[in-house]
Write a protein that binds this DNA or RNA. Structure first.
Lengths: 253, 253
DNA sequence: CTCAAGCAGGCATGAACGGGCATCGGCGTG
DNA sequence: CACGCCGATGCCCGTTCATGCCTGCTTGAG
């Protein structure tokens, strides 16, 4: 049996039964658990199933995001400190653009209940969290929703950001460096990020130190476009100095 | 049972019953209270429930106008039947507009994983549910988000619906009658609903029978704008007859 | 104010995971 | 036909995850 056939069959089993688990699939198909894990990983990347510890569940069956809890594992501590530091950069009253990204989402979740802000975002998870915040006037930016990031992109999003001016934009990047600026893997998402930071008077970048010197496919701005970078202590003082000389204030939380 | 499955189930229990408590959940799922607490913490972080001493209560109400958990439980059975019947009205492939509303949300949650559709919605809860559905190309309509209904309204939303054409619009109403048409309490929301149904070739209204002969502040269309009404058996055959004579097909699920 | 119930955090453990490396077999190229 | 490449699979081992247990702290009902 070829791998794609097996994967197809796994998908069918997952949808029929609502769940599959690694060990019984391994028995079923007479292969090792590693192979099954690889299959599940492939199906997960394709967005067809959702991986869980010990097996998988067909996509769309959960109406919440396990990865919001999962992601916390990766550099959770740093992200938390960054998120808390970023709160101080929000204006007391005014308009804020929030980019998609787990660190930004954490910051959004930590906005105190008594805050009064106007928030504009193209991130579905962030919007969901802020939707019942009594003091926040929330605006969602429309567009095609990318499955992976649950962020709105394309024409509607670009136009919406082109029509507004905000006091602060809080953005995330998958990679940043003095030479190559701000990068992310997806072109459409990069375009929206670019529109978002253009729409704000002040740009705050949240990025843990593992993103430093990383480059990804799509560039959406120069480091010089960023007024303030909030990162963690994993960024060396020398690197921080380089960035500050380029005109971006650096906070190492 | 996987942790996310358990969490999903806890969420369902919380929404159904309006509350859950740690010890009975621990018994129910045959795990220790610590595990349940971790689950509740995860759900709390995701913003879906609110933690209280000894248990939790649902927070993410994907609910409609007037009240909170009361509505969700009221007529839950009818709404489920209506939602299931509505599934049959979705095209096999094509574009669908989904209005905000708990019955529509139930239908959205029941869309099978193998469906391939383009969905446009201004409802945050519905978007959240469909965001990781592999076969669905999701578009969110932007706008100001109303806290009550978590639906986008105002200029961005109206313009977006003005720019598209869909095969079917599935809409909800707080009140409907032959004389006064389709009504809802909020003007801004009514405007969006009107735009949504204008953008579709075929309009399906989901409304349980308690909505019949109700009138609310803002009118967004005539019953004649609706091609098909799906309701429950609480609507008398005579009333159904009246409606059908006005040109709207009626299904009593 | 008291105190049992509930809670957070630390620690232990077994299962699950993932990356690196070796092997195998098919397939195209020369 | 021989060779080498590459994808698929299996194996190994250090790491992470989910869960349970324990301990000391917090909470809130009486």
């Amino acid at each position: 049996m070829y791998a794609p056939e097996r994967q197809q069959e796994i998908l069918r089993l997952a949808r029929d039964g609502g769940r599959v688990d690694v060990v019984s699939l391994a028995e079923e198909f007479q292969v090792t658990a590693e192979t099954i894990r690889r299959d599940l990983k492939a199906l997960d990347r394709a967005g067809l199933i959702r991986r869980v510890h010990g097996g998988a569940i067909p996509a769309g069956r959960l109406d919440f995001e396990p990865d919001l809890a999962e992601r916390e594992s990766t550099a959770a501590d740093e992200k938390d400190r960054i998120a808390r530091a970023a709160l101080a950069e929000l204006p007391a009253e005014g308009t804020v653009i929030l980019d998609a990204g787990s660190t930004v989402a954490r910051m959004a979740a930590a906005i105190p209940p008594e805050a009064t802000l106007t928030v504009v975002t193209h991130s579905l998870p962030i919007a969901a969290r802020l939707a019942d915040h009594p003091g926040i006037q929330l605006h969602i930016v429309g567009g095609r929703v990318r499955h992976r990031t649950r962020a709105a992109v394309d024409a509607w999003a670009l136009r919406a950001y082109g029509e507004i001016r905000a006091d602060v934009a809080v953005v995330a990047a998958n990679g940043f460096s003095v030479e190559h600026g701000l990068t992310t893997p997806d072109l459409a998402e990069a375009a929206v990020k670019r529109a978002a930071l253009t729409a704000a008077r002040r740009v705050v970048l949240l990025a843990d130190s593992s993103k430093y010197a990383q480059e990804h496919f799509a560039r959406f701005g120069a480091l010089g476009d960023v007024d303030l970078l909030i990162t963690d202590t994993g960024l060396t003082p020398e690197d921080a100095g380089d960035i500050e000389r380029a005109g971006t204030e650096v906070v190492r939380a």
